[in-house]
Structures are given as structure tokens and as C-alpha cells.
Design a protein around this nucleic acid. Sequence first.
RNA 1: GGCAUUGUGGCCGAGUGGCUAGGCAGAGCUCUGCAAAAGCUUGUACAGCGGUUCGAAUCCGCUCGAUGCCU
Length: 304
Amino acid sequence: MTKKTLISVVGPTAIGKTALAIKVANHYGTEIISADSRQFFKEMRIGTAVPSQEELASVPHHFIQHKSIFEPYSVGDYEREALSKLEFLFKKKDVVVVVGGSGLYVDAITHGLDHFPKIDPEIRQNLNEELAKKGITSLQEQLKVLDPDYYNKVDLNNPHRLIRALEVCLGTGAPFSSFLKRSNTSKRPFRSVTLGISAAREIIYDRINQRVDLMMDDGLLQEVKSLEEHKDLNALQTVGYKELFQYLKGDIDLETAIGEIKKNTRRFSKRQLTWLRKKEGIIWIDYKYDLAQVLSKVELNITG
RNA sequence: GGCAUUGUGGCCGAGUGGCUAGGCAGAGCUCUGCAAAAGCUUGUACAGCGGUUCGAAUCCGCUCGAUGCCU
């Protein structure tokens, strides 16, 4: 019996992941799980480059616009939901395709995260207030006491990291680092093949700039306007939205806002590439790939 | 042709004798529940030549290049 295989498609934003994922899924007659942390939200469509109606119709997609920006949603939630969806899909398919630009979310599926207890959201809220009032040193001092091991490892200038570690310490009474066992890792009941699409930096940047213009033509500004009253929600701290909120507020003009979107998207793509660069086992292909060749490489990895 | 202003790293821009502004772009990196997030690292650049001085991006002279006004 064939072993179940998960084919992941990764790469920087605007490189053509969606198109390749659909072709691969069609070839195997299977379905697609999205690992894009912004395409989850049904209120955000244009700015997150959700697949088109035709694309969605050609292959069943999961985790696309299935959540609301009003619901809190984390990688942990995603990992649980995605794994149970995978289990369900593997009952009828030998291959499932995952596609997405959020590296952490792809890893959550393919390798898994350690288990953390649920933390009362109020703790994080308090820590955020503390950060605003007393500054980052206050958080650093607390972490030094509550989890000296992690204190020596983390980037102490990074408020997000400090707050996450502290909320776990405070919420569980145990050091954050005591949960980092990598116990989940590499225990998946399926084989993993990862396709990485890449191109020269210049080409990626070019595609990004073009796509931002297309989004504007498609009515991104209207979409952002309709969400303006919710601009403080976490899901809307997103490239393409936060810049246009600034424009709507009158802080910058439209041309500047569009330039900022392009710039921030370029930076994002750079971080995606940094993230992927160190990963092992990725089959890298050029953005002008030959589909038959790509599929035969995948086959080789499945059978080999 | 005359007079005046001016010339700082890819770009913007501060600095008017000694103690390497800063920002943007670019590049490299970190990453376990806010991840399209958050954070870190990264260029001794002062138009050229000569002079003054212990020491010049900063002062002086000439050359070259900009810009403006005048005839």
C-alpha cells in the first residue's frame, strides 16, 4: 500500500505558489490545504491574494476564508485543525497538497509544535499594558527570574518573544523553556515532500510591485475602507491594510501608501526567503518551471 | 563673460577645525500559539588638486561640475 504523502509548496510571496499547487493537486486528483495566515480570514480577500473563483472551483481548498477577523486564531489552533483535516483527507486520498507563505504554519503541519496549555488572554493583555507603561526592561527582569534559561537564549529586545514566554510562565507556573521538548517533531504519519519556488530577487520584486498594482485595480482600497472601523484587530495589522488605514486617516497620501505596501511586501518576501534558506530537504525549482519535470521530481521522492 | 550660491556613501540629509549624525533603499540574520508579526546586524561618505594647521568634510587658493541672477 502506498504511503500517504503531503506535498508542500513554499516560496516567497507573489512567486506563483497557488498556481503550482493547483496543478499538482489536479495531477493527483486531490485537495489543497492553505497555510497562509492571512487568507484564513473571510473579511480579507483582495489584499491577501486569495485564489480566484475559478481557481477555488478547480480544486477543493481548505482553510481559505474559514475564519473571521473577530476570532482569535493562533498557529496552535491551526495545527490542530489542519491535522484533523489531513487525517480526514488521507482516508480517501494518498496525496494532499499544502500551500502557503507562512513558514511557521507550514512547519506546524509538517513537523509540529510542542504542546502548550491554553493561556488566559488577559495575561497577555496585562503584559502588553506593562510593556507600554514600564518599558521592555520590566519584561526582561521578570523573565530573568521566571525562566533564566530562556532569558539567556531569546532576543531580549523583542517584545513579542518576551511576552509569549512570560504569558506561558505566568499562566502555567512553569518556565516557558520547560515546554520546549520538540516532542512532537518528526512523528507525522505521512511522508513529506516540499517544493520551493524561487527566482532572482529582481524578478520577485518586480512581481510584487505588479501584484500590488493589480490589487489596487481590483478594489483593495474599498475593501480596506469597509474594514476601517476594525483596524486595531490583530488580523488587520497586515501589509496592504495597515498602510491604507494610514492613508484613510490622512497621515500619508495614496501614492506613498502604495509605495509602502510594495516596500513592506518586498521586506516580507526577503524574510520568507531567509526562513526557507536554512530548511533542509526542499526541492527548489525556478519560477519558470516545467510542470512535467517538477512532477517527475516529486514522483522520484515519493517512490524513492 | 560678470556676480552669487553650491558640490557629503545608491538616494535624502545633519554637521562649520579634532570625539566616525540620522533616515530610506540594498544586503545578511533570528524565529515554537500576534508570524504579511516582532527583533537584530551591516557603508569613516564628504567633487579634484594644492596650501594653512599638531590635526580639515569643515579655513584659504585653483580646477571641474551644478544652480540662480545680471549683461
